[in-house]
Amino acid sequence: MLDRLGTGLKDAMKKLAGKTVIDRAAVEELVKDLQRVLLQSDVNVKLVMGLSKSIKERALDEEPPKGMNVREHVLRIVYQELVKLMGKECEVTLGPQTILMAGLQGSGKTTTTGKLARFFQKKGLRVGVICADVFRPGAYDQLKTLCNKVNVPCYGEPAETDAVKIVKAGIKELKNTEVLLIDTQGRHALEDSLIDEIIELNNITKATHRWLVIDAALGQQAREQAARFHEAISIDGVIITKMDGTAKGGGALSAVAETGSGIVFIGSGETIEDLERFDPDRFISRLLGM
């Protein structure tokens, strides 16, 4: 697994491998290099500091297991700590469920809702979609167009201004579907009335999942924003979008840490098929600059 790590960390490891003794100075240098790559990938500063501390402590305090030299031991600690950062594994169940989409403005909720509709449809499930975005101009047209492409029913009332009312009606209208996806309007941590709205949407839908959609390029704000969403509706999965760009997704990882959840899907393009399950190894490689 370790050979798949990114060049940034690989260089740091090579440096470590070239050392005759792995002493405090060598560990400190490794940690410093690691900090650099993680910060360049937008992992939250506080998280990076916590991670460095725990790597340093473990590397200096823990005895290497039998048959492992100090160098291998240190590398293993680094890898374990990085894997911890990825959060828990998120199973996607292929049965009846309601999924509430949440996230900042422009993060990719609507596009991802279309992709998820396609994903569950391909698994042979009956899918229905509700447009609960009463704010963004063209929101319903956008979602409806995406759903039409794959023949999935999409409920919406473009002239209605009450999202709760739409969702209630949509649930009735789509009662025969197995997977119900609810797309919501973009909102952020400081918009109290919109946070209240999504709390209510969560209550009336009794959503099985509340997935937070995060742009791979989101920086240090990710942590605080995720905290607010989590406090409001208890996020149980993160979707990272726009991974086909050059952003590393470290912000989204910070959201994972904040919510104690894991990464469910990765968005990797603009078409309805551009959705991938999460592969921690590949993600670590990218994070570390492969």
Binding site: D42, G106, D215, L218, A247, G251
Partner: peptide
């Protein structure tokens, strides 16, 4: 671009 973008802001 967005004010909330992290390091990628530079690259793009």
């Amino acid at each position: 671009d967005e004010a909330v973008a992290g390091n990628d802001a530079v690259i793009r």
